[in-house]
Design a binder for these strands. Structure first.
Lengths: 244, 244
DNA sequence: CGCGTGATTGACCTTGCTCAAAACGAGTGG
DNA sequence: CCACTCGTTTTGAGCAAGGTCAATCACGCG
């Protein structure tokens, strides 16, 4: 059960939770002993589908994931992007039926942890419960930002804001520095996240390059004018709760 | 301390929590003994402001409330509407700094409950903690619906969806029936919630009346063709978790 | 009766969509 | 190494949704 990979995954989880709040030795141990099933996924492979009632939540160990909702006429709205350390379906612990789908964006390593085990831990350690609760609340804060963006910002501003957000999340876990990071998503996906058509997404992206705010080639984003990007995005990272 | 109003407010809270999950006698008692400060607010009066660090969460006892974010250039995005029984800033229990503001929409009665007391109860009763956690997760599910709507639906569809959502929430707490309910919001506010200008909001509203889907006069919404409205909204109420 | 807020209308403009085609680019089989 | 392919990016042209500005209207209230 305690394979090398699952140990590493739970270590990652412990570090993640500690970034949010303090853990006692006992709590650390309890998390470290959670049963985790490791699985590797292909790019674009689904993890949980809308309407399903999963029995476990997953910890993203490596790679990117995304949540999305399908609407009629082939429309798709991407709701969030996730990076290593995230638990994108932690909410299923208390809301049994999925209201959206979750998929891997890149090749990804996932650790599945049974709800039963997670619930047991939250019952025994209210502090841990609070930290996990907080995780889901940060998620909700990000949703609020997205709502504000979709309602009040134009495509340019929304894209700028998303780039700022993703860069900050990646930097916080050591996967980005120097305003440079990977961006393993197609323009169509970017559009589905921003509520723009792929054609318009492409044009906004070009405009952003033309203004020397970013460079983008072979799935690598280079933010050449961070301050400028922050300004057009009206970006304030406090909602991400990343302060160490 | 245990005034008549605060007793009534905590009764409301107990009923609300019981609609979400089962409470033991002991848990019911603990909730009933929470210290609650009752306050009455004028229409449009703010309750908590962006950036503040509230020391208590509030239970909306009577009237409507709304959450909103202000952006530059006087833009405002309304993030949610709240009805009696809701705890619109329960999240501040675990995220200290507000990332948006909360205000009364109508004259409203609010019960403030200190974080300290709430945290204590959640520590002693993991079951209660789970139910409150679930409350905030339902909130997040509503945010996801709004994101999907803003990204993928046009103004007409968004408004239809919002009307369906509000009616269902009101019906669930006995404040609406026969597809009829009060709607104490101006068209400007409706527009700020849907990401539309007030001018366009007005035109969409007229179109919706012209199609005989709704009637609207003196702050009263009458959904004359519920099935039709549900259809154009692609509305599925399961995300609201209202099943009894 | 006069005020003030909210609703409504018209004219014009911008953002972003659709359709359709072309251009790239990385990987594959020959 | 080349031809081919499939997924993605890019471009053009025309159109629709929704914004802005500026009046005007309606109505509840003191």
């Amino acid at each position: 059960m305690a394979s090398v990979e699952s140990k590493a995954a739970l270590d990652l989880l412990v570090r993640r939770l500690e970034r949010i709040g303090h853990l006692s030795d006992e709590e650390r141990r309890a998390v470290g002993n959670l049963p985790a099933k490791i699985q590797t996924l292909r790019p674009r492979q689904d993890i949980v589908l809308d309407k399903e009632k999963p029995e476990h939540s997953c910890l993203l160990v490596e790679g990117w994931a995304y949540r999305y909702k399908l609407l009629g006429q082939g429309r798709r709205q991407i709701l969030s992007f996730h990076v290593p350390g995230d638990m994108p379906d932690l909410h299923s612990l208390h809301i049994k039926t999925m209201d959206h789908s979750l998929g891997a964006l890149t090749e990804a390593t996932i650790a599945f942890i049974a709800h039963e085990a997670l619930l047991d831990v939250t019952r025994r350690f209210p502090g841990l419960a609070g930290i996990m609760w907080r995780e889901t609340l940060i998620d909700a804060a990000i949703f609020r930002q997205w709502i504000a963006g979709m309602g009040q910002r134009d495509g340019f501003g929304r894209m700028a804001h998303l780039f700022c957000e993703l860069y900050c999340k990646l930097e916080a876990i050591g996967l980005a520095a120097d305003h440079r990071c990977t961006l393993p998503i197609t323009q169509t996906e970017l559009g589905d996240a921003l509520g723009l058509s792929s054609v318009h997404t492409n044009r906004v992206l070009q405009e952003m390059k033309a203004q020397s705010l970013i460079e983008l080639r072979t799935r690598t984003l280079n933010i050449t004018d961070w301050d400028g990007l922050v300004q057009v995005a009206e970006f304030d990272p406090s909602y991400l709760q990343l302060a160490q």
